[in-house]
Amino acid sequence: MAEQVALSRTQVCGILREELFQGDAFHQSDTHIFIIMGASGDLAKKKIYPTIWWLFRDGLLPENTFIVGYARSRLTVADIRKQSEPFFKATPEEKLKLEDFFARNSYVAGQYDDAASYQRLNSHMNALHLGSQANRLFYLALPPTVYEAVTKNIHESCMSQIGWNRIIVEKPFGRDLQSSDRLSNHISSLFREDQIYRIDHYLGKEMVQNLMVLRFANRIFGPIWNRDNIACVILTFKEPFGTEGRGGYFDEFGIIRDVMQNHLLQMLCLVAMEKPASTNSDDVRDEKVKVLKCISEVQANNVVLGQYVGNPDGEGEATKGYLDDPTVPRGSTTATFAAVVLYVENERWDGVPFILRCGKALNERKAEVRLQFHDVAGDIFHQQCKRNELVIRVQPNEAVYTKMMTKKPGMFFNPEESELDLTYGNRYKNVKLPDAYERLILDVFCGSQMHFVRSDELREAWRIFTPLLHQIELEKPKPIPYIYGSRGPTEADELMKRVGFQYEGTYKWVNP
């Protein structure tokens, strides 16, 4: 592979701008107003304001973009700056750019259920340069409990009458099928589907988006991507930290609602779906819905739930269990780990287990898709061969690698495990991989909904998990304890083995 010439960040961002501006969906010269509902909250200060700053800094926003914060707290732009700027990672050389960014910011205080507050917000936006005809993007960085009041008031008082209007809704989209349907029906009564952007930030990850290209742009994968060759698929999300004093919020939802029903299920769809007619948003989402419709409700015998306990040999936070978090209700049975087996009941995947695993306070930070292939028929190497695996590593250190057998150097035919490896950090030294939120917010500006969740996708996802969630809430089974920093409950490994996964433990990928 030829040595790549190092590029400056300015040059890299210039390439990104060229890609972005050559499309006809990006209205570079139009006025846009980006409204952050819930501007005083954690999500706004840690993710949304920093993301908008990065896009502005790199010249990736339309030229005439204004940012308006809205929340109940009586704040000023200076207050917003004070709480969000520490997350910007701005350099001293960017000081003038930073001043320009905050000059485009404003803030309006108001209630979430008060019509007069929204009329005041609308008047404020109209007073901005060309504000009355601007395109408006409303980001709901809010708890779902206020979605209905907020969307109703936005629709009645704050819509642009000339430009387009788009609304970005953060997960969780309800707690179960019934609450999700209620919320979807409410929002759909106010906005068209092409105006609604239900954001799952995992769909903005580079390697998640790469799944489609790997599958449908490489001839070698087509013939082997089926039940005849693939023994099982494992989708993993692991965090090495616990709730760390923020367990009160987590306890309301648990690990299945927080990660599995959305992030992991979306990745499953991209692995299992048929080739779409095109890369058009609805063509892709149509195929994802077909996959979900082929999955039956989760069966309790295919589920393992766990909850982390303190590690007596650990240090600091590792010595504390979930129930030691003062914000967690006493005696909570909320799971911090889950392993679930699903089956896609169609011709391509009949009988292939899709194993979804996620948890907190585990032994490493990792998100990946792992396809394990069947054993080689007619073994001539005296059971020395391990199964081939194709691994798409989402985070950290984005990579695609194939675990395969090669001859060990020497005189004899002794096979050993090795890999074919594409590590993004080595291959793409001159490429700026956008943060997931950067990519998705740019998608909203461009009107691309491919990486957002459609209402029928959402409904099918909740259909699969709601009976299990209701059973857990009714019966309150005690989750299996696992030690902070471990791989999780051993019962999860036993479940995976029972459905056909072979864990060798003899080879570990190392970032080159």
Score class of each variant (00 low, 15 high):
residue 2 A to T: 15
residue 6 A to I: 15
residue 8 S to I: 11
residue 10 T to V: 10
residue 11 Q to E: 15
residue 14 G to H: 15
residue 15 I to A: 06
residue 17 R to L: 11
residue 19 E to H: 15
residue 20 L to F: 15
residue 21 F to S: 14
residue 21 F to G: 08
residue 23 G to D: 15
residue 24 D to T: 08
residue 25 A to H: 14
residue 29 S to D: 12
residue 29 S to R: 15
residue 30 D to A: 09
residue 31 T to A: 09
residue 32 H to M: 06
residue 33 I to F: 10
residue 36 I to C: 04
residue 38 G to N: 02
residue 40 S to K: 04
residue 41 G to N: 03
residue 42 D to Y: 03
residue 42 D to N: 05
residue 43 L to M: 00
residue 43 L to V: 06
residue 44 A to W: 04
residue 46 K to S: 03
residue 48 I to Q: 00
residue 48 I to E: 02
residue 49 Y to Q: 03
residue 50 P to L: 05
residue 50 P to F: 00
residue 50 P to G: 05
residue 51 T to C: 08
residue 52 I to G: 00
residue 57 R to F: 01
residue 58 D to L: 10
residue 58 D to P: 03
residue 58 D to Q: 08
residue 58 D to C: 10
residue 59 G to P: 01
residue 59 G to R: 09
residue 60 L to Q: 09
residue 61 L to G: 03
residue 61 L to Q: 03
residue 61 L to W: 06
residue 63 E to D: 13
residue 64 N to V: 05
residue 65 T to C: 12
residue 65 T to S: 09
residue 69 G to S: 06
residue 69 G to H: 05
residue 69 G to A: 09
residue 71 A to P: 03
residue 71 A to Q: 03
residue 72 R to K: 04
residue 74 R to K: 15
residue 75 L to C: 13
residue 76 T to Y: 07
residue 79 D to Q: 14
residue 81 R to L: 14
residue 81 R to N: 06
residue 81 R to C: 08
residue 82 K to C: 10
residue 82 K to W: 10
residue 84 S to F: 08
residue 85 E to N: 06
residue 86 P to Q: 12
residue 87 F to C: 07
residue 88 F to Q: 05
residue 89 K to S: 13
residue 89 K to I: 08
residue 91 T to H: 11
residue 91 T to F: 08
residue 92 P to T: 13
residue 93 E to P: 09
residue 93 E to M: 10
residue 96 L to P: 15
residue 96 L to S: 12
residue 97 K to H: 06
residue 99 E to T: 09
residue 100 D to F: 11
residue 100 D to S: 14
residue 101 F to Q: 03
residue 101 F to R: 01
residue 101 F to Y: 06
residue 103 A to E: 15
residue 103 A to K: 14
residue 104 R to F: 07
residue 104 R to N: 07
residue 104 R to K: 08
residue 104 R to L: 10
residue 104 R to G: 05
residue 105 N to K: 00
residue 111 Q to F: 11
residue 111 Q to P: 14
residue 112 Y to N: 02
residue 114 D to T: 14
residue 114 D to W: 09
residue 114 D to M: 10
residue 114 D to F: 09
residue 115 A to F: 15
residue 117 S to N: 15
residue 120 R to V: 13
residue 121 L to M: 10
residue 122 N to S: 11
residue 123 S to F: 14
residue 124 H to S: 12
residue 125 M to K: 02
residue 125 M to D: 00
residue 126 N to G: 15
residue 126 N to C: 13
residue 127 A to F: 11
residue 127 A to K: 13
residue 128 L to T: 13
residue 129 H to Q: 13
residue 130 L to R: 14
residue 130 L to N: 13
residue 132 S to Y: 13
residue 136 R to P: 01
residue 137 L to R: 02
residue 137 L to G: 08
residue 137 L to N: 05
residue 139 Y to I: 04
residue 141 A to D: 02
residue 142 L to A: 04
residue 143 P to C: 06
residue 144 P to I: 03
residue 150 V to I: 09
residue 150 V to H: 04
residue 150 V to L: 08
residue 150 V to A: 09
residue 151 T to D: 01
residue 151 T to W: 10
residue 152 K to T: 10
residue 152 K to Q: 13
residue 153 N to Y: 14
residue 154 I to Q: 02
residue 154 I to M: 09
residue 154 I to W: 02
residue 155 H to T: 08
residue 156 E to L: 12
residue 157 S to L: 10
residue 159 M to Y: 10
residue 160 S to E: 14
residue 161 Q to F: 12
residue 165 N to P: 03
residue 166 R to P: 01
residue 166 R to M: 04
residue 168 I to A: 13
residue 168 I to G: 07
residue 172 P to G: 04
residue 172 P to Q: 02
residue 173 F to E: 04
residue 173 F to S: 05
residue 173 F to L: 07
residue 177 L to H: 05
residue 178 Q to E: 13
residue 178 Q to I: 15
residue 179 S to R: 03
residue 181 D to C: 11
residue 183 L to G: 03
residue 183 L to T: 04
residue 184 S to F: 10
residue 185 N to T: 10
residue 185 N to P: 02
residue 186 H to D: 07
residue 186 H to G: 08
residue 187 I to R: 02
residue 188 S to R: 09
residue 188 S to W: 01
residue 191 F to A: 02
residue 191 F to Y: 15
residue 194 D to T: 12
residue 194 D to M: 08
residue 194 D to G: 10
residue 195 Q to E: 13
residue 197 Y to L: 00
residue 200 D to Y: 01
residue 201 H to A: 01
residue 202 Y to T: 02
residue 203 L to I: 01
residue 203 L to A: 03
residue 205 K to G: 03
residue 206 E to V: 07
residue 206 E to N: 07
residue 209 Q to R: 01
residue 210 N to S: 09
residue 211 L to V: 12
residue 212 M to I: 08
residue 213 V to C: 14
residue 213 V to K: 05
residue 215 R to G: 00
residue 220 I to A: 11
residue 224 I to A: 08
residue 224 I to P: 06
residue 224 I to N: 09
residue 225 W to S: 02
residue 226 N to P: 02
residue 227 R to H: 10
residue 227 R to Y: 09
residue 227 R to K: 13
residue 229 N to H: 11
residue 230 I to E: 03
residue 230 I to G: 00
residue 231 A to H: 07
residue 232 C to G: 13
residue 234 I to Q: 15
residue 235 L to Y: 05
residue 238 K to T: 01
residue 238 K to L: 01
residue 239 E to V: 01
residue 239 E to I: 02
residue 239 E to H: 04
residue 242 G to D: 05
residue 242 G to N: 06
residue 243 T to L: 08
residue 245 G to R: 08
residue 246 R to Q: 03
residue 246 R to H: 02
residue 246 R to S: 00
residue 247 G to F: 06
residue 251 D to R: 01
residue 252 E to W: 06
residue 254 G to R: 01
residue 255 I to M: 12
residue 255 I to V: 14
